[in-house]
Amino acid sequence: MNITVDVNELNTEFIVKLKGEIDAYTAPKLRESLFPISERENVKIIIDLTEVSYMDSTGLGVFVGAFKSVRANNGEFTLVGLSERLRRLFDITGLADIIDIKSSTEGGLE
């Protein structure tokens, strides 16, 4: 399985659309795409997970890493379009309490 990472830049806002599966094999590709953006000062990243069919804990590691980096650079990090299964992963790990998670893609995204 594979993943496609589609990055759209609108002013200082980055909308990252992910499609496919996030696991140990695809996580490095995701990390390579996200990290350079997450290190920018005051960046606003919105990650759309609507078309992510599967994610294991490796993917979680990538998002936490990116989140920490964005926070360190005074940016904003938002996840949208999480399926119930993904949402549960963020709830269990306590990440839902520190990361901004919106379950639908409404507001800000077309």
Binding site: V64, K68, T93, G94, L95, I98
Partner: peptide, 9 residues
């Protein structure tokens, strides 16, 4: 039981 993963904060 609720709690954040180790190593984040």
């Amino acid at each position: 039981a609720k709690g954040l993963l180790l190593g984040v904060d």
